[in-house]
């Protein structure tokens, strides 16, 4: 479903990704871990097509097409979802209105009938219930004045209604207490399916207790230096990132 080959990317002429290789098959959950500044979030932004991230080499193939050819909104309509580490606030735009707009633009892209307000409300209520979220959240301005936990849950809500093919979650666990973390994990787990892939970007292993990944990658200095199963995450939790960095340094260039 997603094939990343030798991906290189820069921000303001500084190379952040230095040759990333990664393949995600439908139904798989991959976790990317790594120390701060290793390029984890950059990978997410590059996949979503953010403006200031310049791809300088390599390829990204998504569902058989060249993802780099598409604008961010086209990628989204193809099924790429990015859960933001820092969701953006948009004052004056109600959450429900935003959700309705994005769902209908997605449905339109898929050639499905747009939902009217009643159908939309039904869908939202259903999703809110599974995520243990309060309906009042719909009336508030998009992320405006939301707590950290509310913002993250709101990201999961958006993911739930958009039903993406590939969901990239960028440090969705950061700043969450254990209850919120469970809600987020439950949201993700309930959406795991044969035809959907996940890329979970996280700094800590904690989240992976609740969302058990099929593959764990360690990203250090813009490269994936080690991949393994869920036990790799536990090992990292135990030893920190330094041993991998040292290993890498010891390897011949």
């Amino acid at each position: 479903m997603l094939k990343i080959k030798d991906l290189r990317a820069s921000v303001e002429d500084t190379e952040i990704l230095k040759g990333v290789n990664l393949e995600i098959k439908p139904g798989e959950v991959h976790a990317i871990m790594g120390p701060n500044g290793s390029g984890k979030s950059t990978l997410g932004f590059v996949l979503a097509g953010k403006d200031d991230y310049e791809v300088t080499g390599g390829t990204i193939e998504f569902k058989g097409q060249d993802l780099l050819e598409l604008d961010p909104d086209e990628r989204a309509r193809e099924g790429v979802f990015l859960g933001f580490q820092y969701p953006v606030e948009i004052p004056g735009v109600s959450n429900s209105n935003f959700l309705k707009m994005i769902v209908n633009s997605m449905r339109k892209a898929r050639g499905e009938k747009e939902l009217d307000s009643l159908e939309m409300l039904k869908l939202l209520k259903e999703k809110l219930a599974t995520l243990g979220m309060n309906i009042n959240m719909l009336k508030r301005s998009l992320n405006d004045g939301f707590s950290g936990g509310e913002k993250k849950r709101n990201e999961i809500l958006q993911m739930a209604v958009l039903e993406p093919t590939l969901a990239i979650l960028d440090e969705t666990d950061s700043g969450l207490d254990i209850d919120a973390l469970k809600v987020v994990a439950d949201g993700v787990n309930s959406m795991r399916s044969e035809d959907r892939g996940f890329l979970i970007i996280t700094h800590y292993q904690r989240l992976l207790n609740y969302i058990v990944p099929d593959v764990v990658h360690v990203l250090v200095d813009g490269k994936i230096v080690k991949s393994g199963d869920k036990n790799l995450a536990l090992e990292l939790e135990d030893k920190g990132y330094d041993w991998i960095k040292e290993n890498k340094a010891a390897q011949p260039a």
Binding site: D73, P87, I90, M101, S105, A109
Partner: peptide, 18 residues
């Protein structure tokens, strides 16, 4: 904000709609 625009387009909205 470029960030606001990107957030909206990432959800599938066209530039104009955003």
């Amino acid at each position: 904000g470029a960030d606001q625009m990107f957030y909206c387009t990432q959800r599938g909205l066209s530039d104009e709609d955003a």
